[in-house]
Design a protein around this nucleic acid. Structure first.
Lengths: 206, 206
DNA sequence: ATGTAATTTGAATCGGCGTTCAGGGAACCC
DNA sequence: GGGTTCCCTGAACGCCGATTCAAATTACAT
């Protein structure tokens, strides 16, 4: 309770993390400033000391996880050398935690009407697709993947992951988390014209 | 302005259509009862005469277009006989109007926290996947498509369409409407192990 | 004509929530 | 140890928007 527990570098991220949590639970539309404040253990006006308005706070919270995801992705993908292994690592990283996807869906919906959020999402997606495409180009060059338009294949794989993750996040009984990963891997094999190595989880095949 | 312009069978659908329009423009979160009333040319309390609450009205509006989509789909798919042609018709119908997808994204986001909407969405998606799967089964049976797990292929194609449509709806410059259709068609060919016939639009290949 | 039910309205109510305001306590500097 | 700055609080403000209510207007039956 010390009145000066921290500075910008501590307080702001702490608030943003709390906001992201509340958004996942209640949605952007249902998130009140008081909810975020309560989770931080402070009073509502305290948040407005750090952020100009609720809208700005939530907008920042919606994009705060992006970099964290990227760091994890790079850490796991760089652990593999061959394109096939890297592709599997990428797919598994992206499909492992379908819960986080709720935040993405909120971001999408708000991006429909907010130019800044739209630009932020676009930037991230371009980066994401580029990461996939790089692996595809690599695999095609080594001959490990069959010939394919790398840009188109990357776009398709990214879309596949998005579409399936959305359904998993919505709790569709047909799209459980293992089946999500399995379907993306199997589809990627066909899209890339390649056999992908078994990943950490190991696919079902007796 | 006549006080009895219509009965249930006219008034309710009219209000729902207006609500859907407003939702596309402003989002569910930004839609006020007064907005919908204004678009109908009536006063706000008039809407509450036909619907118990704003929440109920918007929930119904979010799912009102589903059947219309299905009717158009069946009309166009039934026009073709061979599985390949039917698949192309289905894909073109689904990817043609990416604008409507904004309503879907709103539905998804609300379905995250509303059990009724979640169930409605699930029902529709099951129907949609079944329609795709039926074509795949057909194509595998006739030998027109290569061997594939029909359920998995249908799931993948549906997810692909969802993921790409979302980006198109968000105005991603990399995902224009023609490229959306083109990518789904090309990916479907690989997923199904088949050459698909050229559709109405005719794919780019000089 | 007149009574009745259906539909709509203007005005009022009511609660909720973002934001503002006027301080107040703690650390840091001198 | 006094001033300054930073971070925060409780209370109050003000607005917006859903909902309610009582009354009005119309259609229809008789």
């Amino acid at each position: 309770m010390s009145p000066r527990p921290s500075i910008d570098h501590i307080r702001r991220p702490q608030i943003l993390a709390a906001a992201a949590e509340v958004i996942v639970e209640r949605g952007v539309a249902g998130t009140r400033i008081a909810d975020v404040a309560e989770r931080c253990g402070v009073s509502p006006p305290a948040l407005l000391y750090w952020f100009d308005s609720k809208e700005q706070l939530l907008a920042e919270a919606l994009t705060v996880d992006d970099d964290r995801f990227y760091e994890e992705l790079e850490a796991r993908v760089d652990g593999a050398a061959a394109p096939g292994e890297r592709m599997v690592a990428l797919i598994e990283t992206a499909t492992e935690s379908a819960d986080d996807f709720a935040l993405w869906m909120e971001l999408w919906t708000w991006a429909l009407r907010d130019a800044d959020l739209r630009a932020a999402r676009e930037r991230f997606d371009a980066r994401w697709r580029a990461a996939i495409e790089a692996i595809v180009i690599d695999g095609v060059a080594t001959g490990e993947f069959g010939a394919a338009d790398p840009a188109q294949a990357a776009l398709a794989i990214a879309a596949l992951i998005d579409g399936l993750s959305a359904q998993a996040a919505l709790g569709d009984p047909e799209v459980t988390n293992p089946r999500l990963t399995e379907t993306v891997l199997a589809s990627a094999e066909r899209l890339l014209g390649a056999e992908l190595p078994a990943g950490a989880g190991g696919r079902a095949s007796p």
